[in-house]
Structures are given as C-alpha cells and as structure tokens.
Design a protein around this nucleic acid. Sequence first.
DNA 1: TCTGGGGTCCTAGGACCC
DNA 2: TCTGGGGTCCTAGGACCC
Length: 421
Amino acid sequence: MWAVIDANSYFCSVEKVFHPGLGGKPVVVLSSNDGIIVALTPEAKALGLHRGDPIFKFRSIVERNHVNVFSTNMMLYAAMSKRVQNIIRKSVDYCESYSIDEIFADLSGFDRNFDIEDYMRGVARKIKLWTDIPVSVGVAPTKTLAKMGSKFAKNYPGYRSVCMIDSEAKRRKALELFELDDVWGIGRRTYEKLLSLGVRTPLEFADKPGDWVHRHFTKPGVQTWKELNGCPCVDTPEVLKRQSITTSRSFGEMISTIEQVKASVASFVASCANKLRGQGSKAGAVSVFLCSNFFREDLPQYFNMASYSFPVATADTIEITRAAMAIVDEIYRPGIKYKKSGVILGDIVNGGVQQNLFDPIDNREERLELSRALDCLNQKYGLKTVRLAVEGGNSEEWKVKSEHRSPNFLTDINDLLTVRI
DNA sequence: TCTGGGGTCCTAGGACCC
DNA sequence: TCTGGGGTCCTAGGACCC
C-alpha cells in the first residue's frame, strides 16, 4: 500500500500559521510579481476566485470581502515543508518527496492486521499539532488511487483526514464518483480525448479492455489505466539532483536597455549557479531567453533564446555569466520593451566530468572555490551581499513586485516572531 | 496599469551511420 | 525493368505535474 500525504491549500496554510486569526477567513497567495492567484482557501473559492486568476481583475471582490492577500515567499514555504516531511519520515520506513506539499509513503512494511488507517490518522494529527499545517491522506494499492483518496479526504470531513481505498468495492465506488479530469495523469488533452471516445468517468476508463487502451493511448495513458485498476506502475523516484535548473522572472516594469537586460540575466545566472553548486553538479550548457509583454498588443513583440555549450562542464559563476552575457549581445534587440528574461542550465552532470584537451581554463578548481566563497558569504550575510558588478546596484529597475510578502519567520534571525504574553 | 515559475517524461521525425 | 535493411543519436514539441 502507498499513502500520499498532501497539505491542504499549502501556501495559504503556512501564512495562516504565522498570522493567527485567519481561520475561516478567505486567504489567497499570489505568484511571483503579484500576478495571479496560485493558492487559495475554500473560503476564497466560495467567493468565486480561482487558481490562475489575475488578481487585478478581481480587486473589487478582494476589497469587498476583505480577502487576505499574500505575495509568495518560497523560502518560508520550503522551510515549513521540511518540518512537515521530517515528521512523516520518522513515522514510516520509506518516503518519496514528490513536491513541496506532497509526499508518498511506502506502507508495505506494515503487518497485514495493522490498522493503517488509524496510524495515518495519528500522523496527520501529529503534523497538525507540531506545525499547525492541515493535511489529507490517501491510502491505496497504487499512487494514482492514493491521490484520489487524498482528495476525498480533503473534501469530506467525515473521513477525518484519511481515506483508504483497500477493497474492490471501495475502488469501484471511488472511480465512479471521482471527476475524470481530476485523475492524476489525465490532463486537459487526455480528458478531451477520453470524452470524444465516450468515456466519462474513471470507472468507465478502468473497465475498458487492455487492447482498446493500447490502441488509443501510449505509455502514460496505459500506466494511468493500470494504476486505476490497482496495478502499481508509476515511478516517482526522489529527485535529489535536477537535470535542468531555471531562473526566470517577469519584471515589475518593462525594461529596454541592454544594461538592464544584462543585469537581470546576470542575477538569474547567479541564482542558477548557486542552486547548481548546492546539488554538487556542473552544467554543460547555458541558455538565455528574452521576451516582451505578450499581453500588450499595442507594442512590438519579441521572443528569442540561444544556448552555449561549455568546453568543460562548469559551476563557475563567472564563466557562466560571461557566456550568458555573450548570448544577450546576440539576441538583444533595441527598441523592444522586455517583460521577462530567464536563464536555463542544462546538460547537467554529476560526478565524472568529461575533460577537454583544448580547455582554455587551467585553474578550474581554484575558480570553483571562488564561487563557493561567494555562496558562503551570501549565506552568512544575506542574498546578493557579494555579486558581480554586471548585476548592477541595489536599484534593480527590473525588480519584481512583491508587496505583501511575509517575513522569513523560519530562516532569518531578524524575522523571528515576537510573542507578547 | 496589472496576466507565474519550475520541473519531468515521452514520441516522432530528421540526420546520420554501416 | 529493377533502387535494402538495420541501426543510433539528437531535438523539438507535446503532455503532464506541482
């Protein structure tokens, strides 16, 4: 059996932990640049707000109903996630962290007569007591069915946080009641395809014969079908090392000069390279993209992207920045108002790095040490305390909007909560 | 005025090899 | 008149996830 432990309205729940008194009130958390709603509580949903809504279109609803609005603070959410996941890791033998607010737990080690449902209820209770984050738990023979269970647990209080699908009758009942497009692995396109084939519920899909499924679908579709029938086949290995690392942002205000564009790109390189060193890897290639504001039909539009492959895979901020700046020189066009830029590190290698007979750099180890020193200084004295000059001063004209951001309650000593008794 | 960011896997088709 | 067969690697794009 697998369990999936899923936090409810996770980003909102974290904000509620540190802003007491928001229980039962509408809360939303916005994307970067305070653009769209990325998380919302059931109370906010009841007002007609949805995930993905641009907040500026719903100002009147927000103001009229005193919706509590927060900018996103990933540092805070990641720190809290670690606490929640630590509790789970101590409660079961083996876990696979799937996302910031979800974790799969392998329950196969438990004895046949063991009361798993009651045990997981205890875990959920412990998480709530120790972190104040509410979670929903689904338990089933496959991950896809477990995910269904967690949604039932979330939507129906009667389950008291845990929904277990452990018999053929329960499986069929769940498949019959569940929304087809909410099934894990069935996105918009597959949903439309299934509808056009006359399939309207997960149960109808699961009951189709194997040759029918193989005729109409490729590997991912077949896997989902098997999982719905109780046959485990979806792998979610713990991703400890990324194959690619991206940093990109929309700007609070559009920018035009090459100096501004370079400052933004250099800053994103620094962030990517820091993450790269954090996982002990090196990148074989860097890509940079620039784009205009595609919502502004009155302005000339532009998107361009180019890549550079390093002679030897590297994690050196200076080397990567130099390559990225050359790409900007290549793809920058004057007269465009840029809304967004981004940096992608690819061809990431871990461990053995292919050497190059004609490598122009002969002190790679020393240069990596220099970059590591930057990481240490910035860790100790704060982000961007030491940076390359091309990133520009503190004015940061391309700065993203983040007007309702919570302090870093869990990771910055200066942001610790003050409690008055 | 204002519309996010970061990932993974799979497949088909092109280019190339002998 | 007749024009093979069997591979690999790479890439772009699609689909999905949170």
